[in-house]
């Protein structure tokens, strides 16, 4: 859906990481889906995953990595922005048993926050394992704890939580997982934890709605568009 949204809040929550809360029409948006934000002065919209929906409020958490996200960080409450919403194929949260595992790395964590909320509403036990480079980058711990998840945080340099990477603290066989994070993390999960789960992929996109073929990846089931058949794929189909 294409619509105009009003920024309610836009604030920094960790090093180079911001949270923006917008108000608009939220119906039908599921965890793992993304929005495409029009940014004045830039041609292409920027795809950002949805990290929460509450009533008419939609939350995104984004890292400042380039010109688009830098401009987003300068936007102020009260400003209106044009967004496409409800994009992509999200997590199928009906999969897995009564106990599930969420694995997030860096700015791969945000879609898992919304997923955790829905999984807890469905009465599931949720364990969250998050990995960051260093303490200044950590966010999301409070949200997961508020939902009643058990949370383990890892940092590469040991400055917060457990020193190491997410796969160091996950015992196998692990419960069914939902993962999002950088490619090295996803590879390590496939190799060390297995394929019993779903992964959200990230690629540079053109349109975000499946028409330009800009983000096609090869999977075991053939060519798939990250923006349309994805971003969430069954882990067993991925060739990362």
């Amino acid at each position: 859906m294409k619509g105009v949204w009003t920024i309610e809040r836009n604030e920094q929550i960790a090093e180079r990481v911001c949270r923006m809360v917008l108000r608009g029409r939220t119906e039908g948006i599921v965890p793992g889906q993304f929005v495409e934000i029009a940014i004045p002065g830039l041609y292409l919209r920027r795809p950002i995953s949805v990290s929460d929906i509450e009533g008419d409020r939609l939350t995104i958490i984004y890292k400042i990595v380039g010109a688009g996200t830098a401009r987003m960080a300068q936007m102020r409450s009260g400003e209106e922005i044009d967004m496409l919403t409800g994009l992509g194929h999200g997590y199928d949260l009906t999969q897995g048993g009564d106990e599930v595992l969420l694995i997030g790395g860096g700015v791969g964590v945000p879609p898992l926050i919304y997923a955790a909320k829905k999984l807890r509403e469905a009465g599931k036990q949720v364990r969250v394992v998050m990995g960051f480079n260093t303490a200044h980058e950590v966010f999301g711990e409070n949200e997961f704890q508020t939902f009643g998840c058990s949370v383990t945080v890892c940092t590469m340099d040991g400055s917060y939580g457990t020193k190491g990477v997410v796969t160091d603290v996950i015992d196998t066989p692990a419960p069914y997982y939902f993962a999002c994070g950088p490619m090295p993390m996803l590879r390590a999960i496939l190799q060390q934890i297995g394929t019993n789960g779903q992964m959200s992929m990230e690629e540079r996109m053109g349109c975000g709605v499946g028409i330009c073929m800009g983000c096609t990846i090869e999977t075991k089931e053939g060519f798939r568009r990250v923006c349309k058949e994805g971003p969430v794929f069954n882990a067993e189909t991925l060739m990362v």
């Binding site: 830039l42 041609y43 292409l44 690629e203 540079r204 996109m205 053109g206 330009c212 800009g214 096609t216």
Partner: peptide, 8 residues
């Protein structure tokens, strides 16, 4: 990939 680049 990447197949897309933003331009002025």
């Amino acid at each position: 990939l990447p197949r897309i680049a933003e331009c002025p």
